[in-house]
Design a protein around this nucleic acid. Structure first.
Length: 423
RNA sequence: GGAGAGGUGGCAGAGCGGUUGAAUGCACCGGUCUUGAAAACCGGCGUGGGUUUGUAGCCCACCCAGGGUUCGAAUCCCUGCCUCUCCGCCA
């Protein structure tokens, strides 16, 4: 959510900045609602003020044993007037809130203009795509040939976009997750955290999934309006909802492994083969709650933490800055890490690292107390995948395959695989 | 699942429907005293919003949340959420 005051006072400015990402702000509507809001709110508060002082004098008169009947008569219609005014105000405020809740974040200056992913800016590459002297297979062929990956079984159990893994491949996924968690906690200063996989609507509103992206979520039936988390970002970031963090506790750095559930509405026909796009996948998520002045440094550092995993695994990748047309709703700036997949012969997203500035924090009321002023200030939230485990599994399988369809276990994972060197 | 108790400021803990945004204690910040510290004493100490050029002033709201009764609600009523205790069940 953008600062309502900023929206009010710099409407033209904001509109221009949002236009960069292809969002058209309905300035006229906001302006008229805002004018009306101001008028109604001032009047409503004046009425409240009057009610308060009159009620007070009635109380005094009563205490003094005076006849309060005439006083009561004076305020007879005040309640109704107030109620009407209040209702009108509530309506306008609700309308304004509905509008502001679906306004995306303002892209950072350093974000390149563009319409689609084709306009993203490549920042750097690491590693060389492996040169095979045979035709490399994709992870589906590799996994199915060994009987370690079964899509038919999963679709029997549930439906499309699910998979079952067996034996060493299942263990390889677990190994990857543990390796990532250990690296982030031991080397990058994150605190491991375990969180619910079901969250309520308030949490989803806080991080920006609601109200706009309801169709992307799996919701539970029943008494509670609970949703399966689409990413650990939701429960982990919401840890600081309605919290004023002590300066000594800043910054907060959390890492969590969770399954993620996404309906993938609107992506029918895309990535239908393999486990690139599943309704359920494991992800390691890094979340940082930082001071406003530190968030862009934090974004660089966090992106580096995700890169470190790829480097340790020896997986070639590139880093791109998402352009204004491709950036997520809540994000001010996003780096995508794209790993080389020999099976597809291209780089594919394996991590997304974003600075949300105070966009989420404002919705969350996540603040820290600035010791210089003694006042609470909105924090900045920064997060990124470190990494998407399922896609990392794909990358390891495809990059470490040999002519016979065997997969060499990367050095750093062997301790997690009981010393196994080849699958 | 059954029975009961309760949710008030950072914490503890008062609060007859009226002048209570809220006593008191602790914690915290500033000051006096002291060689220094402690103690003692004095003062300060919530959050959000509106108005405004304004971090000045004024005003509004907030005692779990949402409704309601009333001229007036932390205090009464309803609903929800959460916590605790006991019994039952259970990974």
């Amino acid at each position: 959510m953008l600062d309502p005051r900023l929206l009010r006072n710099n409407l033209d400015n904001i509109a221009a900045l949002l236009e960069r990402r292809g969002f058209k702000l309905d300035k006229a509507r906001i302006l008229s609602l805002e004018t009306r809001r101001k008028e109604l709110q001032v009047q409503a508060q004046e009425l409240q003020s009057e009610r308060n002082s009159r009620s007070k004098s009635i109380g005094k008169a009563k205490a003094a044993g005076e006849d309060i009947q005439p006083l009561l008569a004076e305020v007879a219609d005040l309640g109704d007037k107030l109620k009407q005014q209040q209702e009108a105000l509530n309506e306008v405020q609700a309308e304004l809130r509905d509008i502001t809740l679906v306004i995306p974040n303002i892209p950072h200056d350093s974000v390149p203009d563009g319409k689609s992913e084709d306009d993203n800016r490549e920042e750097r590459r690491w590693g060389e795509p492996p040169a095979f002297d045979f035709e490399p297979k994709d992870h589906v062929d590799l996994g199915e040939a060994k009987g370690l990956m079964d899509f038919d079984a999963a679709s029997k159990l549930t439906g499309s976009r699910f998979v079952t893994l067996q034996g060493p491949l299942a263990r390889l996924q677990r190994a990857l997750a543990q390796f990532m968690l250990d690296t982030h906690t031991d080397e990058h200063g994150y605190t491991e955290t375990y969180v619910p996989f079901l969250v309520n609507r308030d949490s989803l509103r806080g991080t920006g999934q609601l109200p706009k992206f309801e169709e992307d979520l799996f919701a539970l039936k029943g008494e509670h309006q609970y949703y399966l988390i689409p990413t650990a970002e939701v429960p982990v970031t919401n840890l600081v909802r309605d919290v004023i963090i002590d300066d000594k506790e800043m910054p907060r750095r959390w890492v969590a492994q969770t399954p993620c559930f996404r309906s993938e509405a609107g992506s029918y026909g895309r990535d239908t083969r393999g486990i690139i796009r599943q309704h359920q996948f494991e992800k390691i998520e890094m979340v940082q709650i930082v001071r406003a002045s530190d968030s862009y440094d934090a974004l660089e550092a966090l992106t580096g933490h995700a890169e470190a995993i790829l480097q340790k695994l020896g997986l070639p990748y590139r880093v791109v800055t998402l352009c204004t047309g491709d950036i997520g709703f809540s994000s001010a700036k996003t780096y995508d890490l794209e790993v080389w997949l020999p099976g597809q012969g291209k780089y594919r997203e394996i991590s997304s690292c974003s600075n949300f500035e105070d966009f989420q924090a404002r919705r969350l009321q996540a603040r820290w107390r600035n010791p210089k002023t003694g006042k609470p200030e909105l924090a900045h939230t920064v997060n990124g995948s470190g990494l998407a485990v399922g896609r990392t599994l794909v990358a390891v399988m495809e990059n470490y395959q040999d002519q016979d369809g065997n997969i060499t276990v990367p050095e750093v994972l062997r301790p997690y695989m009981g010393g196994l060197e080849v699958i």
